[in-house]
């Protein structure tokens, strides 16, 4: 009898203890829940602290930073009809960056003119200063450098493609499968400034070649343009070149009434256009069509897949 009562009381005590521990458990669970949900905000909070320090640092070391920009003179762009080849800017970019098929980081669009005929618009990433892609990226994989260039860190990109949905210029490309790239690209050290080797399930785009400019070269597209229609420049020093001549950038832009693509969207691109249809190199607007782009390493890549855009 006694033992049973004792057992009863012990069980009750245990039950009570358990109730208490359960309460603690619930509290713990609640705190853990709050912590888990708040966790995605932690990097933002940390970065807020970090940002302030960075600003202070900038004040201490005032080095001028290049502000890369591009001017594309459409008066001189004939879509490479004159040399009867696919657009050379596109192909040089593909070869320089081991660009996977079907990506054309610099794509030459043929647009109908309001009054009939067509014009060619070589379109790299517009390097927007109010970049929709940078704004929406959930992990900061797409970011703007101090030089005003928008880059993608393919080692951080989670492949959600919201940046592609956000880009109003259709300038972002997804690695849907294992892209065909040559073996030498696979061996290279990855860097967001050149983006090879391509990584499956991540986004790629024109990187504006700041690494080329730092070593004193023009971007691949500007180098390869047979009519020197692409100027690459620095808004900070206010100068630009197409490899042939130097121009004072601001003056060149204003004197030629340069414009932005879809300026009404307020994306503030770093790529400017000068209206034209290739008249300076003798193209008639009625001469329509351009050669399709070629990707040279299709055969060399083992087990690679291509897709259409």
């Amino acid at each position: 009898m006694e033992t049973r009562e004792q057992a009863e009381s012990r069980r009750e005590e245990n039950l009570r203890k358990w109730q208490v521990s359960r309460r603690r458990l619930l509290q713990l669970l609640g705190v853990a829940g709050v912590a888990a949900v708040a966790a995605p905000l932690v990097p933002s909070l940390l970065r807020r602290g970090g940002n302030r320090e960075a600003v202070a640092d900038e004040g201490a070391a005032p080095a001028r930073v290049r502000q890369w920009a591009m001017v594309i003179d459409l008066r001189r762009c004939d879509g490479c009809q004159g040399i009867d080849l696919p657009p050379q800017c596109t192909e040089a970019c593909i070869q320089g960056h081991y660009g996977p098929e079907p990506m054309e980081w610099v794509q030459v669009y043929e647009q109908e003119l309001s009054g009939g005929g067509t014009q060619f618009i070589p379109t790299p990433c517009q390097q927007c200063q109010n970049a929709p892609c940078v704004n929406v990226c959930p992990v900061g994989a797409t970011f703007a450098t101090p030089e005003g260039v928008v880059l993608i860190d393919q080692e951080r990109c989670i492949g959600c493609r919201l940046c592609m949905a956000a880009c109003p210029y259709d300038r972002r490309f997804f690695n849907w499968g294992d892209a065909p790239v040559p073996p030498e690209a696979q061996l290279a050290d990855y860097d967001p400034e050149h983006q090879f080797p391509a990584k499956r399930g991540t986004v790629m785009k024109c990187n504006f070649c700041p690494h080329m400019a730092r070593s004193g070269k023009l971007p691949y597209c500007a180098q390869a343009c047979p009519t020197n229609a692409i100027y690459y420049g620095d808004l900070e020093e206010d100068i630009a070149t197409n490899g042939l001549e130097l121009v004072k950038l601001s003056q060149f832009l204003s004197e030629n009434q340069a414009y932005h693509l879809k300026a009404e969207l307020g994306t503030k691109p770093r790529v400017y256009y000068i209206a034209g249809h290739g008249q300076a190199v003798g193209r008639s607007p009625d001469h329509e069509g351009r050669k399709p782009t070629r990707w040279p390493w299709q055969e060399r890549a083992a087990g690679a897949q291509t897709w259409t855009r």
Binding site: E237, E245, L246, Q251
Partner: peptide, 11 residues
């Protein structure tokens, strides 16, 4: 600028 040298017309 870059590897290009020459005259820049200022006006």
């Amino acid at each position: 600028f870059l590897s290009t040298g020459g005259a820049v017309q200022l006006g």
